[in-house]
Design a protein around this nucleic acid. Structure first.
Length: 390
DNA sequence: TCGGCAAGCCAC
DNA sequence: AAACGTGGCTTGCCGA
């Protein structure tokens, strides 16, 4: 059986009704208000310092003004232009400028972080509270991504901050109803596991079967370093390679990501592919399949069309080739979690458990469950999610 | 006032 | 020859 995205929508629609809220999240608006204040104060402090360092009161939120001041008036070296010819002021550029000894760059980065958290989250989320339910409700688009992932909008609850300490404080505003608790269950390394399976890589499959640290194992294979006592930096590089492989990496991209010379990055990739030759086979076979058929398939036979795969424009073609490599992996992961989502409400009902499925974040499901049912709910959710590929 | 684009950045 | 996949939201800016 072949599933197009449209069919997936009907199947999934038995649980997830398009256009209607699926998600019900209690919010703590008071905490968001406090965070907004807190972030705002830090922001105005930084604003004064930045204006002083720049010698003028410009709009920090305007990349154009910032770029002109840094690389024009202040004569900072080593700038880069965006495709429209304006000075780029993105994170990488500003970090480089900061490293050159211009304290203004670091201040601007901090200011931007706070502006982002305030503008996108702490200030915006309260406006989404439904007065009837007191909760924020998102909408899920079920057939709007090429790979079969869901997309969350109005508000997007799939990109709530988690990587920085300040960002994590925002998550504390998401709370369960009285007498309930949130349960989060996420697939561990689902895309790498799928890659190991789809490309049939014995070492990777074995490592996963034995529950080993996959990044450390990769590092050990590529760099010949024993896993025991491995420096964190070595593992970090292997982790970046693992992620990059799934995305159709290049030496340039990896070098950029790790801040190392391109020659070194290319060398890593070469070693990786020599160690796991099945990965190169998978990449070549997948590209060839896409060129011939115009689509690739997930593990469950759902097709993903790759329109530019035979394009004569190298940029388009290259992009299409990377998309073709990534789509079966990302798409199969999307299939697996959808299967779990379709099965879960019935499985919960059968066990007389009253947990509600609140959110999906690509490899993670979040539930709200009564305190007394936490343990059985955890067990059932894990079990259904683990068997979802079967 | 609205729309769209560019730049930037949040998540997986 | 280009350079790491999938998304959504905000601000600044410009033109209708």
């Amino acid at each position: 059986m072949r599933w197009s995205n449209a069919v997936m929508q009907r199947i999934a629609g038995s649980q997830l009704v398009p256009g209607r809220p699926l998600v019900h999240f209690v919010r703590d608006p008071e905490l968001l208000r406090r965070l907004s204040n807190d972030f705002g104060k830090k922001q105005s402090g930084l604003e004064k310092e930045i204006h002083k360092l720049a010698g003028e009161d410009f709009n920090i939120g305007s990349p154009k003004q910032l770029g002109d001041i840094l690389f024009g008036r202040m004569g900072v070296e080593g700038g880069r232009k965006t495709k429209t010819g304006a000075w780029s002021t993105d994170v990488d550029v500003l970090e480089e400028v900061a490293a050159q000894g211009h304290p203004i760059a670091q201040k601007v980065l901090e200011w931007r972080g706070l502006a982002k958290l305030r503008g996108t989250y702490t200030e915006a989320l309260p406006g989404y509270i439904n007065p009837k339910t007191g909760r924020v409700h998102t909408s899920y688009a079920m057939a709007s991504t090429s790979t079969g992932r869901l997309a969350s909008t109005d508000p997007n609850l799939q990109n709530i901050p988690v990587r920085t300490e300040e960002g994590r404080r925002i998550r504390q505003a998401f709370i369960a109803a009285k007498g309930n608790q949130l349960i989060s269950a996420d697939y561990s390394q689902i895309e790498l596991r799928l890659l190991a399976h789809i490309a049939n890589i014995p070492q990777l499959k074995k490592a996963f079967a034995e529950n080993l640290d996959i990044h450390a194992m990769t590092a050990s294979e590529i760099f010949g370093v024993p896993i025991k006592g491995m420096p964190a930096e070595v593992r970090r590089r292997a982790k970046a390679i693992n992620f990059g492989i799934v995305y159709g990496i290049s030496g340039f991209g990896l070098a950029n990501q790790l801040g190392i010379p391109q020659s070194e990055a290319s060398d890593y990739i070469k070693k990786y592919l020599a160690r796991f030759p099945g990965i190169r086979d998978y990449m070549e076979t997948t590209k060839e399949f896409a060129r011939t058929h115009g689509f690739v398939e997930t593990l469950f036979g759902r097709r993903i069309h790759i329109r530019e795969i035979n394009s004569k424009i190298p940029g388009f073609r290259g992009g299409a080739e990377r998309a073709a490599i990534n789509a079966p992996i990302q798409g199969s992961a999307a299939d697996v979690i959808r299967r779990a989502m379709v099965r879960l409400p019935g499985a919960l009902a059968e066990k007389k458990l009253s947990a509600r499925m609140l959110l999906q974040v690509h490899d993670e499901l979040i539930f709200e469950a009564p305190l007394k049912e936490i343990e059985p709910t955890r067990k059932l959710v894990s079990s259904v999610m683990e068997k979802a590929g079967l």
